[in-house]
Design a protein around this nucleic acid. Structure first.
Lengths: 252, 252
DNA sequence: GCAATAGTGTCTTTCAGACACTATATC
DNA sequence: GATATAGTGTCTGAAAGACACTATTGC
């Protein structure tokens, strides 16, 4: 029972009457590379779990909103700004951090492959690793991360659970929200978009049906330009145009 | 800048290096009555917002998980146990509580009309009020609560926003998850189930299509009994049977 | 022309909406 | 029998899956 932050243990409706849990944010930064989901991980230096791979995160400061804390973590640890983030879930099991009571508000962020590669740069403490989340069965909903040698990587804290939830959330939102576009560069081909969907959902999709569905949504704008550097017929490049409904409050 | 909880202002990766925000849980308890969604509200006695109606809530204690805190609030304020709860969203805007920095983890709970009536009992500080959330337009996604006289009620803090998000979440989950059954008693008719769906979605649904969809899911068990006390042909009573996939971890 | 992928036309299947019909309870 | 709602049969239309076909690029 860590009681190092003791204050008066009185009952009541005032925040300072009780010991308070600490609050952190943790970030699941995802991208799609070669048809597979990848996550950004950081190697922990300090205890607990020193040496283990973990999701980037940090404490929420007293005059900092949750999204501001996430953006600060993103800036400090991965030198990334202006990317898509969304709140995932808040994890508050009493023993999830062996030190003291820590409640973490998890967010997920989506970037294109190129952005993630630039973010990692030469750092030895940052890595992108492939993630696989089974739909059901023995490992139903459990995230599996594989390291360079292809062998499973154990994450710090409850980060495996957080990662699994992020992938499941992404799967759920893919159909009815434009999250898929956040994983691609500014312009992209329909084939790339389909590969992103296939990587997230872990299924093969029907080409004509996929094209119809996407084009019928009315959020894709043909650029008139085509991809370059391919040896076959180059595909049209599209751009995502938000269908007026950009309800980003962004103050939490 | 409330600095009443000052500790050493050092930098670092230790939770006690900074002032920490307080953490509360807030609860959106919903039911359907007479074809309309209703929410449980509690009249605040203390400042801030004394006298205003608010969502029930309370501080999270140091050795209490988030769900444990919600269940305690539910027990202490509405004498309800064993009901469906699910985490909604975490609200952490810096100024959302005028006293100090308070981050709240919002949950929603679903009960049948009878359970809510029993919960309120004779208390004058508890009330159930109808909620309406427009799909779009001027008031898109904004929750509107009406009091006894039919006039709009202003809620404390950012609770209007929390309530709006709860209704939208419920709408989103209604189709692919069994949340609708949580708003009905143990046994119910298909007509009641349809009315619940219509109240949440705020649309009229097609009867044959609704019946087919529900029965095809395979989670409804006919009891062989029929409703009583009606002057017309009584409908079959059904029971919800969980289709094996009850993944309730419940430790956050 | 060959290889490889882009992009399309169309048939089939599935399922929701609409509507009308039959069934069965109370009075 | 009148009334009111329960419950069903069937037509239609929208959209996804399957499959084959045409189009266009580099070499």
């Amino acid at each position: 029972m860590p009681a190092k932050q003791s204050r008066k243990p009185l009952a009541g409706d005032d925040p300072s009457d009780y010991d308070q849990p600490s609050v952190t944010v943790d970030l699941v930064l995802l991208t799609v590379r070669e048809g597979q989901l990848h996550v950004l991980l950081i190697r922990r230096e300090a205890k607990p779990f020193a040496g283990r791979w973990a999701l980037p995160g940090g404490f929420v400061r007293i005059e900092e909103s949750l999204t501001a804390a996430v953006r600060r973590v993103l800036r400090e640890k991965a030198r990334l700004t202006g990317i898509f983030i969304e709140q995932l879930y808040t994890f508050g099991a009493v023993k999830r951090d062996p030190r003291t009571r820590v409640i973490t508000v998890a967010y997920y962020a989506l970037v294109s492959e190129g952005q993630l590669i630039r973010a990692i740069g030469q750092s030895a403490d940052l890595a992108r690793m492939p993630v696989h989340v089974a739909w059901q069965g023995e490992a139903g909903g459990q995230a599996e991360v594989r390291g360079p040698g292809g062998k499973p990587v154990r994450l710090a804290f409850d980060h495996k659970e957080i990662l699994g939830m992020a992938v499941k959330r992404l799967r759920g939102k893919l159909d009815y929200s434009p999250v898929g576009f956040e994983l691609l560069p500014e312009t992209f081909t329909l084939r790339q978009l389909q590969q992103v969907h296939e990587a997230i959902l872990d299924v093969k999709l029907n080409k004509p049906a996929f094209r119809r569905r996407m084009l019928d949504k009315g959020v894709l704008q043909a650029t008139g330009r085509r991809e370059t550097g391919v040896t076959y017929r180059p595909a049209e490049l599209y751009r995502f145009v938000d269908a007026a409904g950009s309800n980003n409050r962004e103050e939490n």
